[in-house]
């Protein structure tokens, strides 16, 4: 399967040595400078019309997420209703981009959002630790895709990455990517290239930057995920602290910008975890705007993985419209 993938830079993945040479040949990241740049961009003052535009943009980029052991079909259906229509009192509020659930709840979610345009994303590959065999990871991905997930959020094998076994990480991503394209089993493979008919599920590759420790590693993992065929690179599972940070997202945005410049292919970015306020969300949008550029200000290329953020966005949106803050009971808790 891996060999049929045609991705840019696939030639560097012919051996672990060449992959290593490539990843370690990327320009380094100076931590102090990257932190300073992210902090400077966080001082941008987004007010009035720009704030209104940013809030609607952010709502449309939210991957509304529930990833708990206690998740139930009822909980997922409630969240889906919220994603489709975030504010029941105001139909002008855009829908969220997607809902993100565990694989066993994908079918429930698909049914709940049907016809709304909201996508269903599923975590897979032994989320959140990624500690399982490739067979299990591929099988789990295939199950989620078969259940109707149009997006797969996989985790990389951080252990293999930190041990320097980049080829193993690459091959896992490529195998999961291939599994994303085999929705409904064999019928997808019959079509030439498999691109006709139903689209292959989009693959988001979670780097779990909180476990990669250095910004150099974040840059290398970003490139590894992109050349292995990921459609999105995502910061975190939300289960490890720190989750998304502005500097880490800055480095990932630089990576997708540089990758697009060299290949013409635009990869998406998804910070996830810890983004709770409108102010936070707007800082991320500024970061996107001034790093990867305005092309990335699109739910196809930028997502915010969050749960409580959505209500804060709604509250700020209403404040802008009415000049007053409504109490928390005026926004639904789902």
């Amino acid at each position: 399967m891996v060999s049929t993938l045609t991705t840019p830079f696939a030639e560097v993945a012919t051996s672990n040595a060449s992959l290593r040479a490539f990843l370690h040949g990327l320009p380094g990241v100076d931590r102090v400078g990257a932190d300073a740049r992210a902090a400077m961009l966080a001082t941008r003052s987004i007010k009035t019309t720009a704030k209104g535009q940013a809030i609607d943009l952010a709502i449309g980029m939210v991957d509304l997420t529930t990833l708990e052991g206690a998740d139930t079909p009822g909980k997922v259906r409630a969240m889906c209703a919220k994603a489709v229509r975030p504010d029941p009192a105001d139909p002008s509020v855009p829908s969220a981009a997607a809902v993100c659930v565990y694989p066993d709840l994908v079918a429930t979610a698909v049914q709940a959002v049907e016809g709304s345009g909201v996508k269903v994303a599923s975590v897979a590959t032994a989320f959140p630790s990624g500690r399982s065999s490739l067979e299990v990871k591929v099988a789990e991905t295939a199950l989620a895709v078969a259940a109707g997930a149009s997006e797969i959020d996989m985790v990389i094998d951080r252990g293999a990455f930190l041990a320097g076994d980049y080829l193993k990480v690459f091959e896992e991503i490529a195998a999961v990517k291939a599994a994303c394209g085999r929705a409904g089993g064999a019928q997808r493979e019959n079509g030439a290239g498999g691109a006709q008919g139903e689209q292959a599920a989009h693959l988001k590759v979670i780097l779990e930057t909180g476990e990669l420790a250095t910004y150099d590693n974040v840059r290398r993992a970003s490139w590894l995920a992109m050349i292995a065929g990921g459609d999105f690179i995502k910061t975190s599972t939300g289960k490890v602290s720190p989750a998304a940070t502005l500097p880490v997202t800055l480095i990932m945005l630089e990576a997708v910008r540089d990758f697009a410049r060299r290949t013409g292919r635009k990869i998406g970015v998804k910070p996830a975890g810890g983004i709770r306020t409108t102010k936070d969300a707007i800082k991320y949008l500024v970061l996107v705007n001034e790093t990867a550029g305005p092309d990335w200000l699109d739910p196809d290329l930028f997502r915010l993985g969050a749960s409580s953020l959505l209500n804060d966005l709604l509250m700020q949106r209403q404040k802008m419209a009415t000049g007053r803050y409504a109490g928390p009971d005026y926004f639904t808790l789902d």
Partner: peptide
């Protein structure tokens, strides 16, 4: 040539 390119640009 081995500088951290993005931070060098900022600098």
């Amino acid at each position: 040539e081995d500088a951290a390119l993005d931070q060098a640009v900022e600098g």
